[in-house]
């Protein structure tokens, strides 16, 4: 998969995207808002960043806004994980995969790591 590339993401767009991943949870500070949230809030931030960077290196120029639009075209809903699941299935069926140190992941998962990495970087 190669998501469409759009440069110049505003930081607020990224925060908005990531806030949406919290599925409505209140976030008291801006810094916390930039952290991966929701279903992936507890992931090791450094590890996520390294994996996400690896994906971004294979997909140079990809912005967080682009990723967010590609991953969540309808915004965040209760069905977000199900959507990711469906997209991952489609990826695997057509061989659109991201391989990281041997792990064969869908491009959707790679893009998710990319987005989370961008968010992690933005929050620091």
């Amino acid at each position: 998969m190669t998501p469409p590339v759009h440069q110049g993401l505003a930081r607020r767009d990224l925060l908005t995207t990531l806030l949406a991943l919290t599925a409505g949870a209140a976030l008291p500070t801006l810094v916390r808002a930039a952290e991966p949230a929701g279903a992936f809030a507890d992931l090791d931030r450094d590890a996520v960043e390294r994996i996400g960077k690896a994906w971004l290196e294979q997909n140079p120029g990809t912005s967080a806004k682009t990723l967010a639009m590609w991953l969540f075209p309808s915004g965040q809903t209760a069905g977000t994980l199900a959507d990711l699941r469906r997209r991952a299935t489609e990826d695997f069926r057509k061989g659109a995969v991201f391989i990281h140190r041997g792990w064969r992941l869908s491009q959707t998962e790679g893009a998710l790591f990319g987005l989370l990495a961008l968010g992690s970087q933005g929050g620091r």
Partner: peptide
């Protein structure tokens, strides 16, 4: 661990 967590949740 992160990969396992992510993939498992997606699944």
């Amino acid at each position: 661990r992160v990969i396992r967590q992510t993939a498992t949740r997606v699944d």
